[in-house]
């Protein structure tokens, strides 16, 4: 499998660039699989979590899974994000991981390395840790609360509704430039991504008979899931987490993207875009929280992201 065919043209590993690989993975039945990531020059949290979910799928279906990488920056970034700690023993790779470990350096923008979790009990620990990092980096309380609440709510959804053999993966990265969107904007951006291998949003909401007319397609279900009080269980008070995350991202002038099944929606506060995409087996969430580089923040760079993670 070679992801060169689609989005990775730009060299940026996002969830979308892994679509062809996800499609091919559905057909894998035993044997060896090689995932060719050599065109990748930049990995954002969404790509990292998507890669983790893809590897879980491939590992469950293949006798042996290989991952090919090129250059130094991407392997070094993956090492810093704990990718090899989680997958190094489960895949075969052309990367000299031991050498990367020896040269390992801190990554100033990493707020949460790739983390695998299975239960709600793990979430407070994750939040405590990222909150401490954000405090040390002089994030304002409001920003810290926004990032932590986003992560905690989405992690909670993943373990509650997205139960799967591998649980869920999350990663958070801060950039000193805006990564999301086509146009260049000054400022900084925090990206939060989470992927699970559960039944997906449509299936979860379908358990509640009153949502039958809102679950005709995956995109219908995703749009409906953003509404306050919409939940699979139908209990009063439930179904507020995702709506609150949508508000937090909109207030930060950012976005909330959801993928589940063949649906993909992105909520911007004043509008919601949706389109049909190749099947994603589970639920994936990406939240962009831009930061306006104020006087108390380091000067923003407008440089395009290029192999800098």
């Amino acid at each position: 499998m070679n992801i060169r065919r689609k989005g990775a043209m730009r060299g940026i590993l996002t969830l979308g660039s892994l679509d062809p690989a996800f499609m091919d993975a559905e057909k894998v039945d035993g044997g060896s699989t090689v995932l060719d990531l050599r065109p990748v020059e930049f990995v954002e949290p969404a790509g990292l979590c998507g890669l983790a979910a893809l590897l879980e799928l491939l590992i469950s279906r293949s006798r042996l899974v290989g991952v090919r990488l090129s250059g130094h920056n991407v392997p070094a970034y993956l090492e810093r994000m704990d990718f090899f700690r989680l997958f190094g023993h489960r895949i075969e790779t052309n990367v000299d991981v031991a050498a990367l470990e020896e040269r390992r350096r801190g990554n100033p923008g990493t707020l949460q390395e790739l983390i695998n979790f299975h239960s709600e009990e793990e979430i407070p620990g994750i939040i405590n840790r990222i909150s401490e990092i954000l405090t040390n980096k002089d994030y304002r309380l409001r920003e810290r609360a926004g990032i932590c609440a986003t992560l905690s709510e989405i992690c909670a959804n993943a373990v509650e509704h997205g139960r799967s053999s591998f649980g869920a993966y999350a990663a958070v990265q801060a950039y000193q430039h805006i990564v999301s969107g086509g146009r260049e904007r000054r400022g900084e951006e925090v990206l939060v991504a989470i992927a699970d291998g559960g039944v997906g949003v449509r299936e979860t909401l379908s358990r509640n008979p009153k949502y039958v007319e809102f679950t005709g397609t995956d995109n219908d279900a995703l749009r409906h899931a953003l509404q306050m009080g919409v939940s699979g269980t139908g209990e009063i008070g439930r179904g507020g987490g995702l709506a609150v995350v949508a508000q937090i991202s909109a207030r930060a002038d950012g976005s909330l993207s959801l993928r589940s099944g063949s649906g993909r929606i992105t909520y911007y506060g004043d509008r919601t875009n949706s389109r049909n995409v190749p099947n994603f087996p589970g639920t994936f969430v990406r939240v962009s929280l831009p930061r306006i580089a104020g006087s108390d923040q380091p000067a923003a760079r407008t440089k395009k992201p290029k192999a800098e993670n």
Partner: peptide
Amino acid sequence: VELMDYSFADEALGILAS
């Protein structure tokens, strides 16, 4: 409390009020 997410607020205070 520095940070309280919706899930906590609902479970601790929403249900208590209920």
